[in-house]
Design a protein around this nucleic acid. Structure first.
Ligand code: FES
Ligand code: FES
Lengths: 133, 133
DNA sequence: ATTGAATGATACCATTTTAGTATCATTTTG
DNA sequence: CAAAATGATACTAAAATGGTATCATTCAAT
């Protein structure tokens, strides 16, 4: 089971690279060179990071990307959710088949609890922490 | 992100059905009728449950399946792992790219911790508990 | 022994998700 | 205007998941 898809993985790397650089703007070109990610793929990823409000893009000559927020305000979940959708572990496929009453279902209850813990943990990880490593 | 795939889901239902039945052996035929799962698919699932040592199969006329263990000894992780492979959240795709030293990587450390919690929780859920719901 | 009811093994196909590419339009600076 | 950048979008490829089909094997009843 994968917590992070390749998209997410690359996105984190890109964000970390941008964050750890003193230049005001980083172009896709530079990121491709640094991260060895196929250019069109990385471009798509950057576009999505932009749409999700994690980075901000600037067009035209000398353009590129910079973080939209300070490093300690960008959470791992932000990036995961941008690429993998909202973090939900279990939408419960059993329903009536197994559980007449979803409200008191012991399985659902416990999975919800696990999910709560995981999301809380992921929400507490910021880019700033990753840079320290 | 899905914690349980359809395979796993069906497998859990099948195991619960078998567990909640007083008959000694339950045939695939009966399970198909009860669970409304396509027969060849369910058969494959039962075969895997058998190979994984969760149920035990008996061939021939009057044959079928029964649990290989008491209900309080079958853990949710057993079934998940039988169908989805070992439970690992993150094999770390970053390595050198991001982390010169994997041992002290803050991301890896935290994901490992999350994983530990999740597996511990899942290991504590047995079929016996699901039947109570 | 033969038959029929069951599972075992295995190969195959379909669908969905993820990964990646290609192309053209738009914006901005010089 | 031209060049350098991103935006939008449609397409293709690969992998994982979901599902089917077929034949072999075992076992009990007769
Ligand atoms: S198994 Fe999902 S509500 Fe019970
Ligand atoms: S990001 Fe994986 S070891 Fe650091």
């Amino acid at each position: 089971m994968k917590l992070l898809t390749r998209n997410t993985d690359y996105a984190i790397r890109a964000v970390c690279y941008i964050a750890g650089n003193k230049k005001e703007l980083i172009s896709a070109k530079e990121l491709v060179g640094a991260l060895k990610i196929p250019r069109p793929f990385l471009r798509k990823i950057l576009q999505r990071l932009n749409k999700s409000g994690i980075v901000r893009s600037y067009k035209g000559l000398g353009g590129g990307f910079k973080l939209a927020l300070p490093v300690n305000k960008i959470f791992l979940t932000d990036i995961i959710e941008a690429f993998q959708g909202p973090f939900v572990l279990n939408e419960c496929s059993f329903r009536k088949a197994l559980c007449p009453n979803k409200k008191i279902c012991p399985l659902k209850k416990r999975i919800d609890k696990i999910e709560g813990y995981v999301t809380a943990q992921l929400k507490s990880i910021t880019i700033s922490e990753l840079l320290k490593g």
